[in-house]
Amino acid sequence: MKINKAHATWEGNLKKGTGEMGFEESKTNFPFSFKSRFEEGEGANPEMLIGAAHAGCFSMAFSNMLSEAGYEPEKVATTAEVKLDSVDGGFRITGSHLVVQAVVPGISEEKFFEIAEQAKVGCPVSQALSAIDVSMEATLL
């Protein structure tokens, strides 16, 4: 079992404070603030990191499932659009929409979409996000 660590610190109150979050193993840190999360400010936010995790996990799962089905993908590029909504006076992550473009020689569109759907449902991050709506738009290039 591999345990992955991420960290975050926050200084100050919600609206005026600032924080930093990152990953232990890569030593990469991302600054974040109220504006970067709820408005249009510079910096990262937790939903971006969830989106990166979802896009990365899906891309790997899809690539693996394609290979297991006898297709060798040249490229799988995924963007996850994670939606944060105001709900009942608070905020809630309500969805993650995967936008996928892939180059997979020799595959039919029908088979491509079938495997993409299996990867969407089967990737561990999709499973962890089962409390929200996970949708997908897949394009075979």
Results as ranks from 00 to 15, higher is better:
residue 34 F to G: 04
residue 140 L to T: 05
residue 108 S to L: 09
residue 94 T to Q: 06
residue 23 F to C: 14
residue 23 F to V: 15
residue 83 K to F: 13
residue 15 K to T: 14
residue 20 E to T: 14
residue 124 P to K: 09
residue 97 H to N: 01
residue 50 I to F: 05
residue 83 K to G: 13
residue 61 A to H: 08
residue 70 G to L: 04
residue 132 I to F: 11
residue 118 Q to W: 11
residue 91 F to S: 06
residue 85 D to V: 05
residue 17 G to S: 10
residue 15 K to F: 02
residue 139 T to D: 11
residue 11 E to W: 01
residue 107 I to C: 04
residue 39 E to R: 14
residue 58 F to C: 07
residue 99 V to P: 01
residue 132 I to K: 15
residue 7 H to C: 01
residue 17 G to L: 08
residue 63 S to E: 01
residue 122 G to A: 14
residue 138 A to D: 14
residue 33 S to L: 04
residue 86 S to A: 15
residue 82 V to G: 05
residue 30 F to K: 02
residue 74 E to S: 15
residue 56 G to S: 11
residue 137 E to T: 15
residue 52 A to Y: 02
residue 70 G to R: 11
residue 65 M to K: 01
residue 115 I to K: 04
residue 63 S to M: 00
residue 82 V to L: 12
residue 108 S to W: 08
residue 127 Q to E: 13
residue 109 E to H: 10
residue 77 A to L: 14
residue 113 F to G: 07
residue 116 A to T: 06
residue 46 P to N: 02
residue 125 V to C: 11
residue 26 S to R: 00
residue 12 G to N: 06
residue 44 A to E: 03
residue 87 V to Q: 12
residue 119 A to R: 11
residue 67 S to R: 15
residue 8 A to V: 08
residue 113 F to M: 10
residue 115 I to T: 10
residue 118 Q to S: 14
residue 23 F to D: 05
residue 115 I to P: 04
residue 131 A to D: 13
residue 99 V to G: 06
residue 48 M to D: 00
residue 88 D to H: 09
residue 125 V to A: 02
residue 2 K to I: 06
residue 34 F to M: 02
residue 126 S to E: 03
residue 95 G to W: 07
residue 99 V to Q: 09
residue 6 A to D: 01
residue 42 E to D: 15
residue 61 A to N: 01
residue 122 G to K: 13
residue 89 G to T: 11
residue 22 G to M: 11
residue 120 K to C: 12
residue 75 K to D: 11
residue 75 K to V: 09
residue 14 L to G: 03
residue 54 H to G: 02
residue 121 V to A: 13
residue 76 V to E: 00
residue 114 E to A: 07
residue 48 M to E: 10
residue 33 S to A: 05
residue 48 M to V: 00
residue 13 N to V: 08
residue 119 A to W: 10
residue 29 N to R: 14
residue 58 F to T: 08
residue 40 E to N: 13
residue 52 A to Q: 05
residue 6 A to Y: 12
